[in-house]
């Protein structure tokens, strides 16, 4: 049983590190700030989550695990919020998302055009 938990913990740590690494590669490779947010999203969800899950499995069911869960919950609330704030600030600061495909509507938010154009 202890061996099984160790293996699971290992697997979570390795997978989490891998996802975090891929997320960081995404932050470097993707073309503009809005695309890079997706890379940061990988890092903030599965990368962080799996590493902390690995620690939880290692620890077993104690108050330490509760604190790890609290960290994960907090980041799951905070990360999309900061991403959203950053995206709005970038739009407001005049950075337009790079889009391909002609069907994409104008990349402005309604706060500058004065109202939603279509739904």
């Amino acid at each position: 049983m202890a061996l099984l938990a160790d293996i699971a913990s290992w697997a979570c740590l390795i997978a989490g590190s891998l996802f975090a690494f891929i997320g960081a590669v995404g932050i470097i490779r993707l073309p503009d700030v809005f695309a890079r947010m997706h890379g940061a999203g990988i890092l903030d969800t599965l990368g962080m989550g799996l590493i902390l899950a690995g620690l939880m499995i290692h620890e077993g069911f104690t108050l330490v695990t509760v604190k790890l869960v609290l960290i994960v919950v907090f980041i799951f609330f905070a990360s999309p919020t900061t991403t959203h704030a950053l995206a709005r600030a970038a739009l407001n600061g005049g950075v337009e998302p790079v889009v391909d495909g002609k069907n994409a509507p104008a990349a402005e938010t309604s706060e500058r055009t004065g109202g939603p154009s279509k739904t």
Binding site: F74, F77, A78, P80, T81, H84, A85, R88
Partner: peptide, 13 residues
């Protein structure tokens, strides 16, 4: 106020 930040901060404060 813009909704996302308001609701999340109300929850977290």
């Amino acid at each position: 106020f813009k909704a996302v930040l308001r609701v999340v901060s109300k929850l977290l404060i």
